[in-house]
């Protein structure tokens, strides 16, 4: 009961704050609102039983990625943006409505019922509420056991991707040296 109420409160607050976030003038305010949204989402992960993911979300997203965002915003010293909404065309409106309908179909029971009956897996039909009887205490062990056996290739490739991203970001953001410009 308490978990459901707090999940509802966190979810509603996350959606409300992200709707607030996309309509702000100052970029710093949006970044701070996004940090709060990420912490709320981490809380939701915790309630769903994914404790390691919750802590990793706070460490990586709210504590590292958003710091980089805030750095760039503060160093570039961007002025507050006046909210200009361009004219919306009929085509965009129709596509948005179509997108809503598809999303609602996929997200609610009607869509799930349609999709599930076409699958041959038993575990989706007997969808149970989240209750890991013993593995609530072994979340880290289960996640890492899976990550280093079945998903080992993906893990190694992701670490390589992170290396490429680090090198790429430094190369892109470096100032062009005067000697390079002269030789070009």
């Amino acid at each position: 009961m308490i978990t459901q109420i707090s999940f509802l409160i966190m979810g509603v607050m996350a959606v409300f704050l992200s709707a607030l976030m996309i309509t702000r003038k100052w970029p710093v305010t949006s970044a701070m609102l996004l940090i709060v949204v990420m912490m709320l989402i981490a809380g939701m992960y915790g309630l769903l039983g994914a404790h390691f993911s919750a802590v990793a979300q706070i460490i990586v997203y709210a504590g590292a990625i958003m710091v980089v965002f805030v750095f760039v915003i503060m160093l570039l010293n961007l002025p507050p943006e006046e909210l200009r909404y361009g004219r919306i065309t009929i085509g965009e409106l129709l596509l948005t409505a179509l997108g809503f309908i598809v999303a609602l179909f996929l997200g609610t029971k009607v869509g799930q019922g349609y999709l599930i009956s076409n699958l041959n897996s038993n575990s989706l039909i007997n969808a149970r509420p989240p209750y890991y009887p013993a593995s609530m205490n072994e979340n880290v062990k289960n996640v890492s056991a899976l990550m280093f056996t079945d998903y080992l290739w993906a893990f190694e490739l992701i670490s390589f991707l992170i290396l490429v991203a680090i090198v790429g970001a430094i190369v892109i953001a470096k100032k062009a040296k005067v000697s390079d410009a002269k030789s070009a």
């Binding site: 979300q57 990586v60 997203y61 990625i65 965002f69 996640v143 991707l161 992170i162 490429v164 892109i172």
Partner: peptide, 16 residues
């Protein structure tokens, strides 16, 4: 976790 790592890389390069 993998999606999170990809999001981190994308944010880094996008900001650069």
């Amino acid at each position: 976790f993998f999606v999170m790592a990809v999001a981190a890389c994308e944010a880094g390069i996008g900001l650069a």
